[in-house]
Protein backbone atom coordinates (compact mmCIF):
# COMPACT_ATOMS: atom_id res chain seq x y z
CA UNK A 1 0.00 0.00 0.00
CA UNK A 2 1.21 3.54 -0.83
CA UNK A 3 2.07 5.71 2.16
CA UNK A 4 -0.98 7.68 3.26
CA UNK A 5 -1.40 11.29 2.18
CA UNK A 6 -2.26 12.28 5.74
CA UNK A 7 -1.16 10.20 8.70
CA UNK A 8 -1.85 11.01 12.35
CA UNK A 9 -0.47 8.86 15.16
CA UNK A 10 -1.34 9.41 18.80
CA UNK A 11 -2.11 13.12 18.40
CA UNK A 12 -2.85 14.75 21.75
CA UNK A 13 -3.97 18.27 22.62
CA UNK A 14 -5.21 19.64 25.92
CA UNK A 15 -6.31 23.08 27.06
CA UNK A 16 -5.49 23.20 30.76
CA UNK A 17 -6.95 20.08 32.36
CA UNK A 18 -9.35 19.42 29.46
CA UNK A 19 -8.08 16.79 27.02
CA UNK A 20 -9.54 17.76 23.67
CA UNK A 21 -7.62 15.24 21.55
CA UNK A 22 -6.52 12.11 23.32
CA UNK A 23 -4.52 9.90 20.99
CA UNK A 24 -5.99 10.44 17.53
CA UNK A 25 -4.92 8.01 14.77
CA UNK A 26 -5.93 8.61 11.16
CA UNK A 27 -4.52 7.29 7.88
CA UNK A 28 -6.04 8.86 4.80
CA UNK A 29 -5.04 7.77 1.31
CA UNK A 30 -4.60 10.28 -1.52
CA UNK A 31 -7.88 11.19 -3.16
CA UNK A 32 -10.04 9.98 -0.28
CA UNK A 33 -12.64 12.13 1.46
CA UNK A 34 -13.01 11.68 5.21
CA UNK A 35 -15.80 13.27 7.24
CA UNK A 36 -15.32 13.76 10.98
CA UNK A 37 -18.58 13.95 12.91
CA UNK A 38 -19.09 14.73 16.57
CA UNK A 39 -20.90 17.04 18.94
CA UNK A 40 -20.11 20.67 19.57
CA UNK A 41 -16.87 21.06 21.53
CA UNK A 42 -15.77 17.51 20.79
CA UNK A 43 -12.47 18.65 19.25
CA UNK A 44 -13.23 18.46 15.52
CA UNK A 45 -11.98 21.97 14.74
CA UNK A 46 -8.96 21.50 17.02
CA UNK A 47 -8.07 18.38 15.03
CA UNK A 48 -8.05 20.34 11.75
CA UNK A 49 -6.12 23.22 13.32
CA UNK A 50 -3.45 20.81 14.59
CA UNK A 51 -2.99 19.33 11.11
CA UNK A 52 -2.82 22.84 9.61
CA UNK A 53 -0.28 23.97 12.21
CA UNK A 54 -2.59 26.66 13.59
CA UNK A 55 -2.35 24.83 16.92
CA UNK A 56 0.67 22.88 18.10
CA UNK A 57 -0.24 19.39 19.36
CA UNK A 58 1.06 18.38 22.78
CA UNK A 59 2.18 15.02 21.43
CA UNK A 60 1.98 12.55 18.58
CA UNK A 61 2.93 12.63 14.94
CA UNK A 62 1.34 14.38 11.95
CA UNK A 63 2.75 13.36 8.58
CA UNK A 64 1.84 14.85 5.22
CA UNK A 65 3.17 12.78 2.30
CA UNK A 66 5.41 11.07 4.84
CA UNK A 67 6.94 14.35 6.11
CA UNK A 68 6.61 15.12 9.80
CA UNK A 69 4.89 18.50 10.07
CA UNK A 70 3.74 18.76 13.68
CA UNK A 71 6.65 21.03 14.69
CA UNK A 72 7.16 23.02 11.49
CA UNK A 73 7.02 26.81 11.51
CA UNK A 74 7.99 29.83 9.39
CA UNK A 75 9.01 29.18 5.79
CA UNK A 76 8.87 25.40 6.24
CA UNK A 77 5.26 25.66 7.37
CA UNK A 78 4.47 28.01 4.47
CA UNK A 79 5.95 25.46 2.03
CA UNK A 80 3.77 22.65 3.39
CA UNK A 81 0.72 24.95 3.43
CA UNK A 82 0.96 25.22 -0.36
CA UNK A 83 -0.54 21.73 -0.45
CA UNK A 84 -3.58 22.85 1.55
CA UNK A 85 -6.83 24.66 0.93
CA UNK A 86 -9.22 25.44 3.75
CA UNK A 87 -12.87 26.43 3.84
CA UNK A 88 -13.54 28.05 7.21
CA UNK A 89 -16.87 27.78 8.99
CA UNK A 90 -17.60 31.52 8.75
CA UNK A 91 -15.82 31.91 5.42
CA UNK A 92 -13.01 34.02 6.97
CA UNK A 93 -12.99 36.24 3.89
CA UNK A 94 -10.79 39.34 4.14
CA UNK A 95 -13.37 42.08 4.47
CA UNK A 96 -10.99 44.85 3.34
CA UNK A 97 -10.46 43.15 -0.04
CA UNK A 98 -12.79 42.70 -3.00
CA UNK A 99 -14.11 39.22 -3.74
CA UNK A 100 -11.68 38.59 -6.61
CA UNK A 101 -8.77 39.81 -4.45
CA UNK A 102 -9.82 37.32 -1.76
CA UNK A 103 -9.78 34.46 -4.26
CA UNK A 104 -6.52 35.67 -5.83
CA UNK A 105 -4.84 36.27 -2.45
CA UNK A 106 -2.96 32.95 -2.35
CA UNK A 107 -1.77 33.07 -5.98
CA UNK A 108 -0.58 36.69 -5.61
CA UNK A 109 0.86 36.79 -2.09
CA UNK A 110 2.13 33.26 -1.68
CA UNK A 111 2.91 32.19 -5.25
CA UNK A 112 4.01 35.56 -6.65
CA UNK A 113 1.56 35.51 -9.57
CA UNK A 114 1.03 38.83 -11.38
CA UNK A 115 -2.26 40.51 -10.32
CA UNK A 116 -3.75 40.45 -13.85
CA UNK A 117 -3.10 36.73 -14.25
CA UNK A 118 -4.32 36.06 -10.71
CA UNK A 119 -7.54 37.94 -11.44
CA UNK A 120 -8.14 35.64 -14.44
CA UNK A 121 -7.63 32.64 -12.16
CA UNK A 122 -9.94 34.15 -9.54
CA UNK A 123 -12.74 34.78 -12.02
CA UNK A 124 -12.39 31.24 -13.39
CA UNK A 125 -12.67 29.81 -9.86
CA UNK A 126 -15.66 32.02 -9.11
CA UNK A 127 -17.29 30.71 -12.28
CA UNK A 128 -16.51 27.15 -11.12
CA UNK A 129 -18.57 27.76 -7.98
CA UNK A 130 -21.39 29.36 -9.96
CA UNK A 131 -20.67 33.05 -9.36
CA UNK A 132 -20.59 35.58 -12.21
CA UNK A 133 -17.62 37.88 -12.83
CA UNK A 134 -19.55 40.93 -11.50
CA UNK A 135 -19.48 39.40 -8.02
CA UNK A 136 -15.70 39.66 -8.12
CA UNK A 137 -15.87 43.44 -7.77
CA UNK A 138 -18.03 43.34 -4.63
CA UNK A 139 -16.85 43.25 -1.03
CA UNK A 140 -17.64 40.20 1.14
CA UNK A 141 -20.04 42.22 3.32
CA UNK A 142 -22.23 42.76 0.24
CA UNK A 143 -22.80 39.02 -0.23
CA UNK A 144 -25.34 36.60 1.26
CA UNK A 145 -24.14 33.75 3.51
CA UNK A 146 -24.41 31.21 0.70
CA UNK A 147 -22.45 33.41 -1.70
CA UNK A 148 -19.77 33.98 0.95
CA UNK A 149 -19.42 30.21 1.33
CA UNK A 150 -19.02 29.88 -2.43
CA UNK A 151 -16.36 32.59 -2.49
CA UNK A 152 -14.58 30.88 0.40
CA UNK A 153 -14.71 27.62 -1.56
CA UNK A 154 -13.32 29.39 -4.65
CA UNK A 155 -10.48 30.77 -2.50
CA UNK A 156 -9.81 27.31 -1.04
CA UNK A 157 -9.40 25.78 -4.53
CA UNK A 158 -7.67 28.76 -6.17
CA UNK A 159 -4.17 27.28 -5.76
CA UNK A 160 -5.41 23.82 -6.80
CA UNK A 161 -4.40 22.23 -3.51
CA UNK A 162 -3.67 18.55 -2.98
CA UNK A 163 -5.52 18.57 0.35
CA UNK A 164 -8.69 20.49 1.20
CA UNK A 165 -10.30 20.88 4.62
CA UNK A 166 -13.91 21.89 5.13
CA UNK A 167 -15.00 23.22 8.52
CA UNK A 168 -18.77 22.98 8.89
CA UNK A 169 -19.34 23.86 5.23
CA UNK A 170 -23.14 23.94 5.40
CA UNK A 171 -23.70 25.50 8.83
CA UNK A 172 -26.07 28.46 8.72
CA UNK A 173 -27.31 27.74 5.18
CA UNK A 174 -30.83 26.81 4.10
CA UNK A 175 -31.23 23.16 3.00
CA UNK A 176 -31.20 23.96 -0.70
CA UNK A 177 -28.09 26.14 -0.52
CA UNK A 178 -26.48 23.51 1.74
CA UNK A 179 -27.06 20.91 -0.98
CA UNK A 180 -25.64 23.26 -3.62
CA UNK A 181 -22.49 23.70 -1.49
CA UNK A 182 -22.26 19.93 -0.97
CA UNK A 183 -22.46 19.36 -4.74
CA UNK A 184 -19.79 22.01 -5.33
CA UNK A 185 -17.52 20.43 -2.73
CA UNK A 186 -17.86 17.00 -4.35
CA UNK A 187 -17.27 18.50 -7.81
CA UNK A 188 -14.23 20.51 -6.72
CA UNK A 189 -12.63 17.72 -4.71
CA UNK A 190 -13.12 15.16 -7.49
CA UNK A 191 -12.07 17.66 -10.15
CA UNK A 192 -8.78 18.33 -8.37
CA UNK A 193 -8.31 14.73 -7.26
CA UNK A 194 -7.72 16.19 -3.81
CA UNK A 195 -7.66 14.50 -0.44
CA UNK A 196 -10.33 16.00 1.82
CA UNK A 197 -11.21 16.12 5.48
CA UNK A 198 -14.52 17.71 6.44
CA UNK A 199 -16.01 18.27 9.84
CA UNK A 200 -19.73 18.63 10.19
CA UNK A 201 -22.82 18.07 12.30
CA UNK A 202 -24.92 17.75 9.18
CA UNK A 203 -25.41 14.07 8.36
CA UNK A 204 -26.88 14.87 4.93
CA UNK A 205 -23.69 16.69 4.11
CA UNK A 206 -21.53 13.93 5.62
CA UNK A 207 -23.22 11.24 3.53
CA UNK A 208 -22.86 13.27 0.37
CA UNK A 209 -19.23 14.43 0.58
CA UNK A 210 -17.53 11.60 2.47
CA UNK A 211 -16.04 8.31 1.29
CA UNK A 212 -15.42 7.49 4.94
CA UNK A 213 -16.86 8.77 8.19
CA UNK A 214 -15.27 8.81 11.62
CA UNK A 215 -16.78 9.97 14.90
CA UNK A 216 -14.89 11.85 17.60
CA UNK A 217 -16.11 11.68 21.18
CA UNK A 218 -14.34 12.59 24.38
CA UNK A 219 -11.10 13.26 22.50
CA UNK A 220 -10.98 9.86 20.83
CA UNK A 221 -12.10 8.46 17.50
CA UNK A 222 -14.71 5.94 18.56
CA UNK A 223 -15.70 4.66 15.11
CA UNK A 224 -14.38 4.73 11.56
CA UNK A 225 -15.87 3.15 8.48
CA UNK A 226 -17.20 3.57 4.98
CA UNK A 227 -19.99 6.10 4.59
CA UNK A 228 -22.34 3.33 3.47
CA UNK A 229 -21.76 1.52 6.79
CA UNK A 230 -22.58 4.41 9.12
CA UNK A 231 -26.22 3.30 9.54
CA UNK A 232 -25.12 -0.18 10.60
CA UNK A 233 -22.13 0.82 12.70
CA UNK A 234 -23.28 -1.12 15.74
CA UNK A 235 -21.96 1.76 17.85
CA UNK A 236 -24.51 3.28 20.24
CA UNK A 237 -22.76 6.67 20.21
CA UNK A 238 -22.79 6.85 16.41
CA UNK A 239 -26.42 5.71 16.28
CA UNK A 240 -27.47 8.38 18.77
CA UNK A 241 -25.58 11.09 16.88
CA UNK A 242 -26.72 10.26 13.34
CA UNK A 243 -30.35 9.96 14.45
CA UNK A 244 -30.14 13.11 16.61
CA UNK A 245 -31.61 11.51 19.75
CA UNK A 246 -31.50 13.19 23.15
CA UNK A 247 -31.51 9.76 24.86
CA UNK A 248 -28.42 7.61 24.61
CA UNK A 249 -24.88 7.23 25.90
CA UNK A 250 -23.95 10.83 24.98
CA UNK A 251 -25.14 13.08 27.78
CA UNK A 252 -25.46 16.79 27.18
CA UNK A 253 -24.32 19.07 29.99
CA UNK A 254 -27.59 20.89 30.67
CA UNK A 255 -29.04 22.11 33.95
CA UNK A 256 -32.67 21.85 34.97
CA UNK A 257 -34.63 25.08 34.72
Amino acid sequence: MDSPKISLKGVRKAFGPKKVLDGIDIDLAAGQSLVVIGGSGSGKSVLLKCILGLLRPDGGSIRIDGEETARLSGNERARVMKKFGMLFQGGALFDSLRVWQNVAFGPIQADGMAPDAAKEVALAKLAAVGLPAEVGELYPSELSGGMQKRVALARAIAREPEIIFFDEPTTGLDPIMADVINDLIVKCVRGLGATAISITHDMGSARKIGDRITMIYDGKLIWQGATADVDSSGNAYVDQFIHGKAEGPIKMQVRRL
Partner: peptide
Protein backbone atom coordinates in the same frame (compact mmCIF):
# COMPACT_ATOMS: atom_id res chain seq x y z
CA UNK B 1 -9.91 46.55 16.34
CA UNK B 2 -8.94 45.50 12.81
CA UNK B 3 -6.52 42.75 13.82
CA UNK B 4 -8.82 41.67 16.68
CA UNK B 5 -11.74 41.28 14.28
CA UNK B 6 -9.50 39.34 11.92
CA UNK B 7 -8.54 37.07 14.83
CA UNK B 8 -12.08 36.30 16.02
CA UNK B 9 -13.38 35.78 12.47
CA UNK B 10 -10.50 33.37 11.66
CA UNK B 11 -9.05 35.69 9.00
CA UNK B 12 -5.61 35.41 10.63
CA UNK B 13 -5.87 31.60 10.47
CA UNK B 14 -6.91 31.99 6.83
CA UNK B 15 -3.71 33.98 6.15
CA UNK B 16 -1.65 31.09 7.50
CA UNK B 17 -3.50 28.56 5.35
CA UNK B 18 -2.71 30.77 2.34
CA UNK B 19 1.04 30.44 3.11
CA UNK B 20 1.18 34.04 4.36
CA UNK B 21 2.85 34.74 7.69
CA UNK B 22 0.58 37.05 9.75
CA UNK B 23 3.61 38.67 11.38
CA UNK B 24 5.05 39.62 7.99
CA UNK B 25 1.73 40.63 6.45
Amino acid sequence: AEIGTMRVTEQIDALTTLSTDPFRY
